[in-house]
Structures are given as C-alpha cells and as structure tokens.
Design a protein around this nucleic acid. Sequence first.
DNA 1: CAGCCGCGATAAAACGGTTTACTGTATAGT
DNA 2: ACTATACAGTAAACCGTTTTATCGCGGCTG
Lengths: 346, 346
Amino acid sequence: MATIKDVAQLAGVTPAVVSRLLSGDSRLRVRPETRARVAAAVAELGYTPNRAARALRRSRTGALGMALRHLTSPVYGEIFRGAEEEASRADHVLVVAELDALAADDRAFRRFTSGGVIDGVVIQRDGLATDEALTENLLLADLPFVVVNERVPPPLSGVALDDTRAARIATAHLIALGHIDIAHLEIGGPTTRSADRRAGWEQAMRHADLDPRADFAVEGGASPETGYRAMTELLASARPPSGIVAGTLQSAIGALTSIRHAGLRVPDDISIVAHHDAWFAEHVTPPLTVVRLPLRELGRRAVRLLLDRIEGQPARQEVVTSLTPELVHRGSTALPSNRLRVGGGT
Amino acid sequence: MATIKDVAQLAGVTPAVVSRLLSGDSRLRVRPETRARVAAAVAELGYTPNRAARALRRSRTGALGMALRHLTSPVYGEIFRGAEEEASRADHVLVVAELDALAADDRAFRRFTSGGVIDGVVIQRDGLATDEALTENLLLADLPFVVVNERVPPPLSGVALDDTRAARIATAHLIALGHIDIAHLEIGGPTTRSADRRAGWEQAMRHADLDPRADFAVEGGASPETGYRAMTELLASARPPSGIVAGTLQSAIGALTSIRHAGLRVPDDISIVAHHDAWFAEHVTPPLTVVRLPLRELGRRAVRLLLDRIEGQPARQEVVTSLTPELVHRGSTALPSNRLRVGGGT
DNA sequence: CAGCCGCGATAAAACGGTTTACTGTATAGT
DNA sequence: ACTATACAGTAAACCGTTTTATCGCGGCTG
C-alpha cells in the first residue's frame, strides 16, 4: 500500500503538506499548482491514509460502536441503516456488538470499550438491569455514548422518538373509526417508550372525552406470547374492548392469535393498531394497521449526537419531531361492529 | 489511559518484556516472579494495549468486516451472532456494513476496505450483479474475504449450509405424511442455495418414486409478493400440488396468503414447509413447519475460515454438515385431504 | 541598508506498541 | 583458567500520520 511518503515524494513535497492538505488544515498556505500536484499523486497511487497510524496520532479512531440487543429486530435494523448513513457521511465506520454479549462477558466489554477501538458508542436501552449496569460501566470507562430510542435524564445523551404522539395518532385513528372501548397493550418495563405510549393513549382518549380505563392498560410485553396472554385477559373481562393499541408489533401479533382463538375476528369484532412498520406487519393475517415512525432518522440523529459529544459538545436529550408519525391503514382496523356491545351497554 | 511504559515501569522491567509476555512470545524467558510482577502491574493499572499502535506495528487491525444485505433479516442476524462469538474468541471486533451501501458508494467501499480498517471480510452473496462486482473489487483490493451462506468455486473461500439435505428433509416430511403432488418454490436467481434446495427436492421425490414435475418447480423468490404470485400460478394449474416446499420463509408467507385468497386452507387442503426458523415462523397463521438450519454455526465457521485465510492458509470451500438440519413440525403441514384430488385423478 | 513580514513550505518529534538483535552475568564443561 | 551456554532480560528501530515550531526567501518599509 502507498504511504503518505510515497505521495509526498511523487508530488515533490514533504509528507506534512500532503497530510495538511488532505485533512483540510486552513492554516496551510500552498500555491494552487502544488495543490494540484499533490492531488494528482494521491489519485495516481490510490492513496488512502492508514487508519491505525492516524488513530494513533490523533487519538481518534474514526470508528463508532453500536451496541444492540437484537440484530434480528427490524426496528433496530432500520435504526442501524440510518446510523450507517450518518457515520458514512462523517467518514466513520461502525463496529457492532450484541448488547447481551457485552453485558455477559467482561472481556468482550473491555475489548469493545478500551484500547481506543471506538470513539464512542450508540446503545439500545430496554430498562433491564444489565442495561443499567452497562451505562454505569460506560460512564466509568469515560467513553462518550448516546442512548437511542429511549428518553434519558440530563447527565446522559440520547435521542428518542415521539412515542406519545405516535400512540396518540394510533388511538385517534380508532376513535375516528367510532371505537369507544379502547385498550392499550403496554410494552411494560421501566422504559420511557412504554410510559410515553401509554400517555399518548390516555391523552387521545381524554381528548375525545373517553375513559382511559385503568383495566384497559395492560402489559402486552414485546413478544407474541406476552401479547397473547394480555389479550386473553382483556377478552375475559366483563366488557372487552373493541379497539386495541399495541405497543409493539410482536404483542400485536400475539393478540391477533388470542382473538382468533377466542373465536372472534379482526377487524370485524376487534380492531388493532400497532407501532412500527416492519415488512411482516403487512403479511400477517389480517395485515396490521400501524403507525410508522422515522426509525432511520432516529439512527442518523443518534450518530450525529454522538459525534457532537465526541467533539466535546455538552450532552443533549433529543426527540425526533421533524418527521410526523404516519398512520398506515391496513386490514386490522375498521368500524366497530355492534356484535360485542349488544349486551355490553354504552 | 495507561500505556505499556507505565506497566513496565511499575513492574520494574522494560516495555519489551510486557509486550512479549502479553502476546505470549514463546522465545521469551522470564522467571516466575517477574511474570507475576508484570501481571500485577497490568491488573493494577487496568492496562489494555492500544489497538491503533498494535495495528500500526503488526499491520493487523484485529477487526473483521461483515458485509450483509439485510441487517433486518433474521437469518443473517443469527449468522452475525455466530460470527461475533467466534470473533470474540479470537479477540477480534466486527465492523459491519450494508452490502448495497458498499456497492452504491465507492467512497464507502474504500473506507471499508482500504487503510487497514479490517483484516478481512465476510460477505453475503445473493447472485446479484452488484455482488459479483463486489467480489471483483475485493479481489482487486487484495483483501481476504469469505462468502457466507453460499457455495463458491475454488479460487474463492466460502462456507455454506447443506441446503440439499435441508430440502430433502423438508420434502421427505411431506412424503411421509402421504403427499404425492409436491411443488417446490425455488428462491430463484443464480444462487447455489436455490439450486441446491431444488436438487434436494428432486432427490427426495425420486427416492420415493415420485415425479419432481418440472411445472412444480416454480420461482417463489425471497419476498411474500413473489411467493404469492408463484403460489397463485400453481393453484391455477390443472392439478395443483397438495404439498409445498418453500425455499424461503418469506415466499412461504406469501404462499399462505395466496392459498387463503383462493379459498383453501392450510394445512387442510395444502401443506407447506419452509426453510429457516425465525421467530415469526411460529406466529403466522398457521404456524409454519420449517427445517431449521445451523445458522449460528455457519457464522462461526465463516469467521474461523476468514481468520485462517488471513493467517495465510489456502482458500477453502466448506459446507456445514456437523449439525443436521432439524424439522420443526408446526401447524402448516398435515396429512393430505382428498378434497383436491377427487377430481384430479391419481 | 537593516529589519520585518508574509509566503510557501519543511523538519522533527510525537503517538504506543512490537520485534529483532544483542548484552551482561552466572553456571557448567574441559 | 578459559571458553561455551543458558538465562533473563534490554535497547532501539520501526510502523504511518499528524502537528508544532521553524526556515529561507523575496519584497516592502523606514
């Protein structure tokens, strides 16, 4: 591989000129013809600066960490893409690691965070005990980090979605269709997105003079199994809801199964709307109505914020409000039937 | 951060001893007590070698690239986990990039492959033109790489699954249930996994003295939409199949929808078995019978092979046969009914 | 004519490890 | 008594960039 010395020699200058030219040092004065010779030499040799040497000198590696729990998850996959876009723009590279592997293996954590492998890290946070521990350890390691997809309190940095608004939109959609008894399948756990979506549901209900009944806010978790159980419980109540706002796609899928097992039909008997638009939302039966959130923008913003933090800017807590959550109407929501309410009153 | 000099000073030796001790230089003779002093110093200072400095000197970065098309895909997510496990074992870190981003943006490709960012790369390959181009460019860049989840011809290195066997198992399952008219939804495109699965289907059919009819081998693609179309076409034939072996989970899901739209039921009228066991296979309606393949092992093997290649070992072409593909029986396969064949003959 | 300034660069010291060749000291062999 | 040998480490070059301080030179000023 060509080094900066080769380039300098070919251009008839010293390595310093090449270096300063390539990194855009504004204090460097060169005449245009020299600049051109250097550019030509770089092109001819196909020169790319050696990252290790640069990192050693600058104490900046040009790599960003990304610690995610489920690489498999379509929502974090999309966030990753946004992150990569933004990292690419800043000529950075993304080192990814499984959150649980980092938490479980101290050597893995140290490999990831020490030795100047990465300049900072974007982390997912689900309110688990291991997540708290990871935050502690990052703080201890003095490595800049930003939390993605979750609001965090001020000493920390993070960027979240407008989950309250999203849930409001989802709930308002059901209300507009004529639903009155609307339940919320909370994600559960101490995450802000769980609380925010519940808050959004409550707000939309109150705004329409409807009652966000406490027994209609049940924990649906983040898996089909937990969603199934929560829905089954709801169906067992004296007056089951006709509309469901699900916190996650997975719990919505579990709910769908539960409803079917109860001999009811979606959307004829019960309507259901979920959050996030993964490809399979369209391919379950029936296709799920969802509110689509700007996940890619979320990833971009997280990386932007991280880069700013690395540059020494103060911590920030952001919410992506630039793009409005968008309701994608599919087959899982419709006008409420009377079937359930005949005996139910109201 | 503590440097090797700090450690050396604290232990009362020179940096050379620390370095050689930590990297296990067998030609170094030290007495046990010195060894202990160094170990104590390392522990006390929490020393981790600086990766950049090490990379600069060794011309090995300790980072491996992973270029995948769909981070979102559960199959590659699982492969990634295996890869991370193995990389971790070898004290390496994983830099991931989106395949299409690399193909589309030359600067991104160069950032990834030049400048000693990574020592080698594991790539996904789907037989696309851009994939061919990427292979060319990697060869040109003289960067070691291995192809994962696809067989490759000898100058290249790669590790694949035993797709033929998997398809044979899937097909044999339907045959054992009593199905006779069994179609295959090929992945399509010039991938070996597409061809291998088709071959497996043919083998199983012939082995049972059944006819792998040419019109029963249709291209189902890798998306629900293409699967839907393929299935619709099959259903329109004079004597539709009663069993379907789907090359991908996605095409199986599309097929499910098509069957439902045709007014038929799974598994009552038609049985369907797919490949790979992602979480949602269990949560579509009905839950899909699949053959589960050792994806994590595939990821591990790919990294192992890559590391060997980096060490200078010759190219190898592997197939993961150590773990047998396992049939997971769920609700989408059952005994064939007579309903379809009443008018159909046989 | 001396001094100063701006221009267009340059020289050289880091950065933090790794690695090769070498050194000084005791012990053993002849 | 003298050399060989093993032992236990050491010295220093080197990897490829970045960056700070400096330099020679011509022109302008007083």
